[in-house]
Amino acid sequence: MRTQVAIIGGGPSGLLLSQLLHLKGIETVVLERRSRDYVLGRIRAGVLEQGMVDLLREAQVAGRMDREGLVHHGFDIAYDGRLHHVDLDGLTGGKTVMIYGQTEVTQDLYAARDAMGGIVIHEAENVALHDVKSDAPFVTYEKDGETHRIDCEFIAGCDGFHGVSRKSIPEDVLREFELVYPFGWLGLLADVPPISDELIYANHERGFALCSMRSKTRSRYYLQCSLAERVEEWPDDRFWEELRLRLPESALPGLTTGPSIEKSIAPLRSFVAEPMRYGRLFLAGDAAHIVPPTGAKGLNLAASDIHYLSAGLIGYYRAGDQQGLTDYSRKALARVWKAERFSWAMTNLLHAFPEKGAFGDRIQRAELDYLFSSRAATTSLAENYVGLEY
């Protein structure tokens, strides 16, 4: 098989890149190690920056999002027994975020690729990248007991943290930066109405909590927990009781409990790989960077990568202009590191860090007190939350 761009990874970043390139007449083939049902069964983020919303509209996959997504003009931070509102709209000159689950985004992208005859090959095993420094790279994979080859001009590595793409860059070229946090998030998904019209981020001495939603009838809640704990140790009743303890009294009347339909514990880490280009291989999304979910930046960073990469490839194929591809790693990483900083800061601001002692606790309280007393500080938080400009 021959194509112009081989895309490794059939998650939202790979599918979005394929869709944007297809609309400009550029051929792609997407390889995904898992089945489509597995990809669509992953529970992931649901807060979309304005930039990502606009990019999905550009990709002609925003119809259902615009009908069913929930536009949020702000969010609340619970601290010291009170709810403090962050007015995103008012502080950023009208910018907002959209609540629309990553699973829904992926479904919409699959539907669009199917409608346009896009090639997405699932259950592609033992994917390997070859000659990525040459002008004629190619990809091999196994499916149904046979080995297949795809000749291409560029390779987009959108295959996540554990994928083959980043591992295809030599160790003497790749630099990796990582911070592992000493706790995780215990997440619960339930078909109950959200506790509030706004997201609530809670700072509490017992640990962080987040009250989020996927729709008006489906809620997603998180609790900071030890990495030594197991999901089996958290029956629903224990989860709901602990959530109540971490929220202010004023928020509790809106809390509706119910049976969980999914529970999981996710470790938190910050990670960046540099560079994001090696020859004709370009990394995007979780293949190049991971953020703790506190700032809601993971999926949005993947979208900004695709914005830069699609623009570079379109410029190359339309006009032979290589500047966008030359600048890709630098531009993408500049935005990545700003989002890493914000996610790190939000994590440090809102979580319990007993190992930092009494001094660390007082510093955190001082930071929160300053945040809620300074419009400049709150504006900075709001600007980063809605997403920095591409």
Rank of each mutant, 00 (worst) to 15 (best):
F359P: 07
F161Q: 07
L21I: 05
N203I: 07
Y317T: 00
L299N: 04
Y221H: 12
R149V: 13
L20E: 02
D327I: 08
S380T: 12
F282W: 09
V97D: 05
T257I: 09
T140L: 05
R149H: 08
E383Y: 07
H307V: 13
D108R: 05
C158Q: 02
Y390Q: 12
D89W: 12
A352I: 08
H307P: 09
S270I: 04
D80Q: 15
A311M: 11
E123F: 07
R64S: 01
L21H: 02
Q107M: 14
N126R: 15
H73S: 14
L388V: 05
K143D: 04
D369W: 04
D236S: 07
D54S: 10
D80P: 03
E153K: 10
Q50K: 14
H130Q: 10
G312H: 09
Y181L: 12
L16C: 01
V132R: 02
Y141E: 00
H204N: 15
Y110L: 06
L48V: 07
E146L: 14
R362T: 12
S219N: 13
T106E: 15
A45V: 11
G81W: 05
L210C: 07
R341Q: 15
D54W: 05
S380K: 12
T96L: 09
L325V: 12
G145S: 03
L349D: 03
K95C: 03
D159T: 00
D369K: 08
G51D: 09
S270W: 08
V164K: 02
E274Y: 06
V71T: 14
K356H: 15
D361W: 11
K331C: 14
D108K: 01
E49H: 15
S226W: 00
Q323T: 15
A6E: 00
E68Y: 12
S168M: 08
L309A: 06
H72S: 14
L223Q: 03
S329K: 01
V71L: 13
Q224S: 05
L48K: 04
E367H: 14
S196Y: 11
A115H: 05
E27C: 11
Q60E: 14
K356M: 14
A273D: 00
P253G: 08
D131M: 06
I8S: 03
F282M: 10
C158D: 01
T106H: 10
E205C: 06
V231Q: 00
G285L: 01
S212R: 05
Y278H: 15
P170E: 02
H351A: 13
K133P: 03
T257V: 13
L186S: 01
S226C: 02
L31M: 04
